[in-house]
Write a protein that binds this DNA or RNA. Structure first.
Lengths: 205, 205
DNA sequence: GTCTATATCACGATAGAC
DNA sequence: GTCTATCGTGATATAGAC
């Protein structure tokens, strides 16, 4: 089954878009993310979607265009909600608890998108650059980190934004890899507290 | 430039293998890892290697065979040396210091191979299974972790092998991603001590 | 809004000369 | 040990009917 919990809900629930277009988007996401973009032929997409190849080209200018249209909602999703919701937490422990839970949920919900994005970013310099800009030019991040340092005295004031991002992404990413990709089923409670502990160790002095 | 520091030294320095075969292996590694396996045509490999397509098929049964022959040394390399060398460290700090330095060096030296492996593992269930077996059935790991728990009283005896691997891979992987993929140039000394601190926090009670 | 039928071309792979 | 020349297939993409 394809995961489309967050990044496509609105578009796919919009009744105005044709049934064929929806089916193509879902089939393409499944095949691109699990078999790879270049390994997936338009013929396979058509079969999986139960439509003809002509239908694909009715709604998408090319196979590349279909890929772009699939990825764009994820980029929007990556920025939204998350950063804004960080300001409400008054202790470092509560903040980290939220981040771990929220980002693991996000990764699980969008796992097919993330696999696809990962594959493409590894081989497409343009997409890599776009992604870099999204992270580094995003002054929101810098400001959020500054506010953290003021709010939570435990945080090492010498940490760079890069180091902060790394301290958070490392433990979360490794756990997500084990659970979502290698199908590891662990004891959520103790695993989460280990992840939290590791993140806080990377942030504090 | 292609990275071939460890995983291919012996084979490529062997003077008995034909010049054309060497050139094909190097060109294929570069193109497969940076453009993707399916996006790379045999024609492009031939051009990059400065040989004809027939030369490729003289030495490799198929394009898939070429990929397999490229990846196999990495699997051997992944197992060798590393585990055995872990027993000589008498403090947890010294052990973790070695692991961080050694694995980051390994990743940097084999980065093209790792990018290629990553792409293929994301889309090839057989390769994923092979990789899983390499890790889980590898009883060496379990034994090494057991010996750690006996040797270093700081280590949480309740940690599962999965949690131990995660505690180590997370911080190292995130740093490797930032440096080798996003070209981040940091202060090695303070970065390394942060990584170490985070790993030890994930291992100790 | 979706289909059948088809154009075009590049891909992986091979035969056989040198 | 390497090349030129070529084959068959299946890929993306389109025209036009319903």
């Amino acid at each position: 089954m394809v995961q489309v919990i967050s990044a496509y809900e609105k578009e796919l629930n919009n009744e105005k878009i044709p049934a064929g277009k929806k089916k193509v988007l879902l089939a393409a996401l499944d095949l691109f993310s699990n078999k790879g973009f270049h390994a997936t032929t338009t013929s396979k997409i058509a079969k999986a979607a139960g439509v003809s190849e002509a239908t694909i080209y009715k709604y998408f200018q090319s196979k590349d265009d279909l890929l772009k249209k699939l990825l764009s909602p994820l980029f929007i999703e990556l920025q939204q909600d998350f950063i804004g919701s960080l300001s409400q937490y008054q202790t470092l422990d509560a903040l980290v608890t939220f981040i771990v839970k929220d980002r693991l949920k996000f990764i699980k919900a969008n796992f097919d998108f993330i696999k696809l994005l990962l594959q493409e970013i590894l081989t497409d310099p343009k997409l890599l650059q776009y992604f870099k800009d999204l992270i580094s030019k995003e002054t929101d991040f810098i400001n959020v980190f500054k506010s953290w340092k003021q709010k939570f005295s435990e945080i090492d004031p010498n940490l760079t934004p890069i180091a902060i991002i790394r301290a958070i992404i490392g433990p979360i990413g490794a756990f997500a890899l084990q659970t979502d990709f290698f199908n590891y089923q662990g004891d959520t409670t103790s695993d989460y507290s280990l992840i939290k502990k590791q993140i806080i160790a990377g942030l504090t002095n």
